[in-house]
Simulated assay, not measured.
Amino acid sequence: MAQHKVARSVVVDAPAEKVFDILASPGRHAEFDGSGTVRDAVRGPERLGPGDEFGMDMRMGVPYRMANRVVEFEEGRLIAWRHFGVHRWRFETEPLSDGTCRVTETFDYSAGGPALRFGYMLAGWPARNGRSIEQTLVRLKDLVEGGA
């Protein structure tokens, strides 16, 4: 794994398209968020595409709103967004030969300068993001396989 990225993967017993449909629906993000910070989509399209903007109600101690923009998009395979910061949250779906798919979530903070990357490390964000990603993938797998 490249430096300044935190990634985890899980195999989901469903086609990649089904998983991607949930990932591309901001109104469903709170259902699988493992960080405990995502509350609800407050603006934007029902289904995301390249360059789309969407807003989320969040809570990390106190409630706040976050505006995001889709910065990477490949239908059915890749979606990534960022807010005002330079880091990205990326989801990739990889179809497997048995009809399942591998889902990889990556928190990518490589675009920030050395001071920003050092600040993330000092604050413990990579480890914290790793734990959140692991929980997100468990929740996403349960959501998709549960027939939602």
Rank of each mutant, 00 (worst) to 15 (best):
E145H: 05
W81C: 04
G119Q: 10
V10R: 07
E105G: 00
E92F: 00
F54M: 09
Q3P: 05
R128M: 14
V138M: 09
Y120C: 09
L48N: 09
V70P: 02
E74S: 11
R28T: 11
P45G: 01
R28A: 08
A2C: 11
A80Q: 09
A24W: 04
R65Q: 13
Y109L: 08
E94Y: 08
Y120S: 11
K141S: 06
A24M: 08
V42H: 04
K141L: 04
I79K: 02
W125Q: 15
F32T: 04
N68G: 00
P95N: 06
V10A: 08
Y109Q: 02
G130C: 09
E46M: 10
S97Y: 00
G61N: 06
W81K: 07
F20T: 03
Y120Q: 14
L23R: 00
F32E: 00
V70G: 03
V6N: 01
V11N: 11
M56H: 04
S110I: 08
C101D: 05
L23M: 08
D40I: 10
G61A: 00
E53Y: 09
T100W: 02
G119N: 12
R88N: 11
Y120P: 03
Q135S: 14
A16E: 00
P95F: 02
H29T: 13
A14S: 02
P95V: 06
R8I: 04
T37F: 12
Y109A: 04
G34M: 08
A24S: 10
V38Q: 06
V10H: 02
K141Y: 05
G85Q: 15
S25C: 10
G61K: 06
W89S: 09
L122G: 07
S35Q: 06
R117F: 07
P126Y: 12
P26R: 02
Y120E: 12
V10N: 03
K5P: 01
R77Q: 02
G49C: 06
I133Y: 03
V103Q: 05
M121D: 15
T106K: 05
G49F: 11
Y109N: 04
F32Q: 01
F84E: 15
L140T: 07
A67G: 12
Y64K: 10
F20K: 05
G61L: 11
D108C: 11
D33S: 09
C101V: 03
S35R: 00
W125P: 01
A115M: 13
V103A: 01
A115L: 13
L140S: 03
A148Y: 13
E105S: 00
A41T: 07
G51E: 15
R139V: 08
G76F: 03
P26D: 00
K18E: 11
G147Y: 11
G113W: 07
S25M: 02
V138K: 12
G113I: 10
A67M: 14
G112C: 10
T93K: 05
D108V: 12
F84A: 15
A67I: 12
